[in-house]
Simulated scan of single mutants.
Amino acid sequence: MKYRIFLIIPYLTLCICLSSAQQLKTEIDSVKKPQTIWQMAKYDTRHTLKSVGHAFTKPLHWKGKDFAKLGILLGGTAALSLADEPIRDFVQNQKSDLPGVVRDFGWYFGSPQNYFMVNAGLYGFGLFTKNEKIRKTSVLIISSSITTGLIQTITKNAIGRARPNHRDDPYVFSSFANDSGFRSFPSGHTVLSITMAHSIAKQFENPWVKAGIYTVGAIPPISRLIDDAHWFTDVAFSAALSIIIVDAIDKFLFEENVYDYPIKRKMVSWNLRFSTNQIGFVGTF
Rank of each mutant, 00 (worst) to 15 (best):
F116C: 00
A120G: 13
G76N: 01
A120I: 09
K130L: 15
T137I: 05
G64C: 02
G124M: 09
K63F: 01
N131P: 02
V118A: 04
K95C: 02
Y115D: 00
K69N: 13
S111R: 10
E132K: 10
I141N: 06
T129F: 08
L140Y: 05
L74P: 01
Y123E: 00
S143F: 05
A79V: 11
I87G: 07
D104A: 15
S81T: 09
Q92S: 07
A79S: 11
Y115N: 05
K95E: 10
L98S: 02
D104N: 14
D84G: 03
R103W: 00
L122P: 00
L127T: 05
V102A: 14
L122D: 00
D84N: 14
F105R: 05
D104C: 00
L73W: 07
T77W: 03
S96C: 03
N119D: 07
G76S: 04
S138G: 13
L74E: 02
Y115G: 01
T77S: 14
G100E: 15
T137L: 13
E132W: 12
I134T: 08
G126K: 07
P86G: 01
D97T: 08
L80D: 07
L140W: 07
S96G: 01
D66K: 12
K65A: 13
N93S: 14
R88V: 02
P86S: 03
P99F: 06
E132S: 12
R135Q: 13
T137H: 04
L122C: 02
V101Q: 06
